[in-house]
Design a protein around this nucleic acid. Structure first.
Length: 843
RNA sequence: GCGGACGUGGCGAAACCGGUAGACGCAGCAGACUUAAAAUCUGUUUUCCGAAAGGGAGUGCGGGUUCGAGUCCCGCCGUCCGCACCA
């Protein structure tokens, strides 16, 4: 009996061979067709988790498959290495963020290599390498020069105890997540990228991304949020503090005659002007700002307003004035920060008007004669005919919109316009562990870009996190600099770039990494766009949108002629696991519980344990499984196989002990099969047509399923073939089937495949072998089983030669014993024959 | 509230364009091999009636279109995801 497959030896051996031979080094100039397979690079948090294993296994299968199909495959790996966790670790464990990050990278690199991924490690980099972020600084300066970067005051969440800026996710119930101190809002001058300049093309571009999930395209579309409408001005009855009119935005200019009030946001300039010396208004504004922004709070938040006493003049009737409110539901950063209210046809306005007893006037009705129909308990937002609206009466909604815009433009009190939900991208972060923004602030010249020959602006190493705040701010020397323009002493910008900037162009740097510039244009263009990008849905909006923007910005400034960075996108599901809780609410790890007599108990205490839902692996729920010991126990191939099996890749994959054991058993079974082939030698004789067919059908379907990333189906195809081979008697066909099976599994379980390939006398490495070709002649069956139905119910089946004539099928169906019995001798009223499929007899 | 996806055995799931529902895997059950266990192999496994032959029901629920519906249409219910006072 042959020995078992020993994954520990085989994994190490073949990984060494691949590395020594440079098997996965990608050539820029091989002449083979190029393809770029990329998985989202990891943040070096410490250790690889199962989600990484799944993500990188999928990409690896595709990369290896494409290699076997003759492609030069770019399949790189690197590290998204800047970010807050490194600073948190620095504060907690007194280690330097850089040292922490690099040690994590070393660990995780080893863990990834242990899985045998076909990666070109020679292209590896971390975004915290000065060689990387220095080029990023150069690109930032190019964008600055092109006018795509600007500076403006913006509010941040400020933690007064930690003296630091908090991201929105770090603010919990209005308090800093770490300090617990009440968070303040502070205005800081910050850098912004003009992503809104690209709103239209980013939206349009989505239309061409036919290899992206619809869901992601829709999410981006909603995020960009294009609204067509009209901007127009109400005259203020009396000017106040230099304000003569109030500009509002609406998507419903057709309802202009239904207006009952106007309202501005709490931080609107008019509100702020009025607040001077008005304590009640100051208090109201403060109240608006204090309001929470969580979903639940907004859901129930009452519409509140402060009547200013000012009145605005209706643009279509100088004798018609409306009260002006400051209202808590008006947002300063959308549209113009001011609205006019039409209670009959907008739900918020309806609630507001009800509360403040403002008129609710119908201006849209089901029909022209319904003009006096009362408005019920809620606003009517649907289509209809315009009524009570003077020159608009009788028009439909769309026509009325056009008519109002035309009139406003003619009389120049307003104009048709488009408003976007998308805001410019604030990239300043008041943190140490990020790319320094390459700017020097000079008293006389203002902010000046650091000259490119002085790049990179290196992060200083000698920093401490003993005191709260950004260590760059208080660094004794780093932050003083000479103004590159006038030579006067200036101050270095101490903000660093959002880490999303780092991940907005890393895929370009993977394609080409010269030392003297961010990338070589021709080489980058030869690889881009990425043919298949794979990662989690959590990046569906921000990362993917920013990368699309960055790529287009590079095109606009003439650095790269690529519009869309990712041709194909696939968002994979999470790896989930069971959860358990003790009676006192503690989360229990699945290793800490066992099943006894149908109920779960905590092994250590014997206390009952409550099984919860199967959820995403997370430390807080204590349901994580560390891949490393699993890989060491079962080998890389079994883990890879399990990651691909059963669940469709876009759906969640429930981790289970039984699942990984099943994968292990199958790996061993594949091994036994190939060893049996080796023992049988070349003596086997005879053809097995049925097995030949099965083999070629499997070749075709496994290939198609890998191409469409339906790995679970490819896995099922392979199981079927393996079952068929084991049932088949020894023959030349069977020998060939086993040899081919080894090729088919090579992308998925590469170590086993190499070992089997070598044992069976394959030439070179299986990683370099050609994917087998399916013989079209063998893809079609010569016999088919057709269904015999009576009234659509299956009653019998017939096995007939493929392509049998309709008449023959009908005759055979009518002759079937069961059919005869059911029809009781009566002829059918109607017969439907679908050749090679079925006969349906209608009684 | 708006937008979207999904609902198939005990479980993960298949089912191309409307044509034999449940491929494949997991778990279970029965058996073989073994002193025993592990490993391996064989059979079985949607459900109900029946000893069997056979028959009924069945893809969240209710309708509809069709010779025929998991698949198409209408209306519900449920779960999950995204956005959210967006004018």
């Amino acid at each position: 009996m042959t020995a078992r497959f020993n994954p520990l030896e085989a994994d190490a051996h073949w990984q060494k061979v691949w590395e020594e031979r440079g098997t996965f080094h990608t050539s820029d100039s091989s002449g083979r067709p190029k393809t770029y397979v990329l998985e989202m690079f990891p943040y070096p948090s410490g250790r690889i988790h199962m989600g990484h294993v799944r993500n990188y296994t999928m990409g690896d299968v595709l990369a290896r498959y494409r290699r076997m199909n003759g492609f030069e495959v770019l399949h790189p790996m690197g590290w998204d290495a800047f970010g807050m966790p490194a600073e948190n670790a620095a504060m907690e464990k007194k280690v330097h963020p850089g040292a922490w990050t690099r040690s994590n990278i070393a660990t995780m690199r080893g863990q990834l290599k242990r899985l045998g991924f076909a990666l070109d490690w020679s292209r590896e980099f971390a975004t915290c390498d000065p060689e990387y972020y220095g080029h990023e600084q150069a690109l930032f300066l190019d964008l600055l020069e092109a006018g795509l970067v600007y500076r403006k005051q913006s509010e941040v969440n400020w933690d007064p105890v930690d003296m630091t800026v908090l991201a929105n996710e770090q603010v919990i119930d209005g308090k800093g997540w770490r300090s617990g101190a009440a968070v303040e809002r502070r205005k800081l001058s910050q850098w912004f990228l003009k992503i809104t300049d690209f709103a239209e093309e980013l939206l349009e571009g989505l239309g061409e991304l036919d290899q992206w999930p619809d869901k992601v395209r829709l999410m981006q579309e909603n995020w960009i949020g294009k609204s067509q409408g009209m901007r127009f001005r109400f005259a203020l009855e009396q000017p106040i503090g230099g304000h003569r009119d109030l500009e509002v935005f609406t998507t419903r200019p057709d309802t202009i005659f239904g207006a009952s009030f106007a309202a501005v946001a709490a931080d609107h300039p008019i509100a702020l002007t009025l607040a001077e010396g008005n304590e009640a208004l100051v208090a109201f504004i403060a109240e608006c700002k204090a309001g929470g922004t969580t979903a639940a709070e907004l859901e129930t938040a009452e519409k509140k307003g402060f009547e200013t006493g000012l009145r605005v003049v209706h643009p279509l009737d100088p004798n018609w004035t409306l009260p002006l409110y400051v209202a808590n539901f008006v947002l300063m950063d959308y549209g113009t920060g001011a609205v006019f209210g039409v209670p009959a046809h907008d739900q918020r306005d309806f609630e507001f008007a009800t509360k403040y007893r403002l008129p609710i006037r119908r201006v849209v009705a089901p029909a022209i004669e319904d003009a006096d129909l009362p408005i019920g308990g809620e606003a009517e937002t649907g289509p209809g005919v315009i009524v009570n609206s003077r020159f608009l009466d009788g028009l439909d909604v769309e026509a009325a919109k056009a008519a109002v815009i035309a009139r406003a433009e003619a009389e120049s009190w307003g104009e048709g316009t488009i408003v976007w939900r998308l805001r410019d991208w604030g990239v300043s972060r008041q943190r140490y562990w990020g790319t320094p923004i390459p700017v020097i602030h000079c008293e006389s010249c203002g902010p000046v870009g650091v000259p490119k020959d002085q790049l990179p602006v290196l992060l200083p190493e000698d920093v401490s996190f003993d005191i709260p705040g950004n260590p760059l701010d208080r660094h004794p020397s780093w932050n003083s600099a000479i103004c590159p323009r006038c030579g006067a002493p200036g101050r270095r910008e101490t903000d660093t770039l959002d880490t999303f900037v780092d991940s907005s162009w890393y895929f370009i740097r993977f394609a080409s990494q010269p030392t003297d510039k961010p990338f070589d244009r021709a080489i980058a263009e030869s690889w881009l766009p990425v043919n298949q990008y794979i990662g989690g849905v959590e990046h569906a909006i921000l990362h993917l949108l920013y990368a699309r923007f960055w790529t287009r910005a590079l095109k606009r400034i003439g650095l790269l002629d690529i519009e869309e960075p990712f041709r194909g996108l696939f968002t994979q599901g999470m790896v989930t696991h069971e959860t358990f809780r003790a009676p006192d609410g503690r989360w229990l790890s699945p290793d800490e519980v066992e099943q006894k007599g149908g109920t779960w108990i905590e092994s250590a205490t014997g206390q009952p344990a409550q099984p919860g839902r199967v959820e995403k692996m997370s430390k807080s729920k204590r349901n994580t499984v560390d891949p490393e010991p699993i890989v060491n126990q079962y080998g890389a191939d079994a883990v890879r196989w399990f990651m691909l099996s059963d669940s469709p890749p876009e759906r969640d994959l429930p981790w289970s002990e039984a699942g990984i054991e099943g994968a292990w058993r199958f790996v061993q079974r594949l091994w036994r099969m190939s060893m049996q082939r080796a023992e049988d030698g070349d003596e086997a004789e005879g053809e097995d047509k049925a097995l030949d067919r099965k083999l070629h059908q499997t070749i075709a379907s496994v290939g198609a399923n890998i191409e469409s990333l339906a790995f679970n189906k490819a896995v099922a195809n392979i199981y079927e073939l393996a079952n068929a081979i084991e049932k088949a008697p020894v023959s030349r066909s069977r020998a060939k089937a086993i040899e081919t099976l080894v090729l088919l599994i090579a992308p998925m379980v590469p170590h086993l495949a190499e070992q089997a390939w070598a044992t069976l006398g394959g030439k070179g490495l299986i990683a370099d072998a050609r994917w087998p070709e399916a013989d079209p002649a063998l893809l079609v069956e010569d016999e088919v089983t057709i269904a015999i139905q009576v009234n659509g119910k299956l009653r019998d089946t017939l096995t007939v030669p493929k392509g049998s004539a309709r008449e023959t099928l009908q005759e055979m169906a009518l002759a079937s014993e069961r059919v005869v019995r059911i029809l009781e001798g009566k002829p059918p009223r109607k017969v439907i024959v679908v050749p090679d499929r079925l006969v349906n007899l209608v009684a």
